[in-house]
Design a protein around this nucleic acid. Structure first.
Lengths: 134, 134
DNA sequence: CAGTTGACAAGAATAATTATTAAATGATAA
DNA sequence: TTATCATTTAATAATTATTCTTGTCAACTG
């Protein structure tokens, strides 16, 4: 777990468990899913601890908070610039690790300084297209 | 108010007021902001009516629900495909009416059928860059 | 006119999240 | 190692956004 050394936060067992669950996870889990997963090892774990940890990690830039889901926040341990491919039926979210360096014409951005972008690709996944319950 | 004719819903005064407030609005207001604005004319207006109306309008495709703000839903009367330019400091959201026809390579999308995309451009707006409260 | 339907207001209920608190723990320096 | 001190935790209360429920009323149907 070398990678958690320079995190800039106290490394408690709870945090380590959350980090461990998140590490390499591409499911974009919600706070509740993280809580459920980590509760297996730490039955005394509090929900607030999950939120606090996620908040600290976000502040330090170790995770990204996704606003893709209108109902709840989702968290992504992959902080590289990347985008998302979302099935509009089953809501599954898939990573897109291709950079798109988009710019805006002057007349649109004006004196706005562009710092980045995030693209949501919408579509129908293979599973939903074939075996959907119509 | 010709444009509200074919809405496919009963046109009640409350709904008309909401529609009227939304029409041409580029501020991406939240339910609460809509409620506050419409309450001026209809002091008895209920919050639930706002949510119900917004929900009906969304179902009929007359407005779009934005998931840009992690804290709450925002609503956009502009249903054309368009994107958003967001100031990461003051959170102001500006429309970007430029189409970006992005595609993904086969190896990424696989059998996914792409239906659309939405781009969030992040940056610092002129106001925040100059007169920010540091 | 009686009955059905849809819409409204009011407020309760729910779900996600944040804030508060005291007790426990990890980091730090002697 | 140990005392110290700030941070973290768990439990719980509070908040916020949203949805649900209920009773009522108006408009429409037959």
């Amino acid at each position: 777990m070398q990678k958690f050394k320079d995190i800039g936060l106290k490394l408690t067992p709870q945090r380590l468990a959350i980090l461990d669950f998140l590490d390499g996870n591409t499911d974009h889990p919600s706070a509740e899913e993280i809580y459920r997963a980590v509760s297996v090892q730490f039955p005394t774990m509090s929900f607030a601890t999950v939120y606090n940890t996620l908040d600290s990690l976000r502040e330090k830039g170790h995770i990204i908070e996704l606003t893709i889901d209108p109902a709840k926040k989702r968290f992504d341990p992959c902080t590289d610039m990347h985008h998302h491919l979302i099935c509009t039926l089953c809501k599954r979210i898939q990573d897109v690790h291709i950079p798109f360096s988009l710019d805006l014409p002057e007349q649109v951005k004006g004196d706005f300084t562009l710092t980045g972008n995030h693209i949501e690709f919408y579509g129908i996944c293979p599973a939903c297209r074939s075996g959907h319950q119509s």
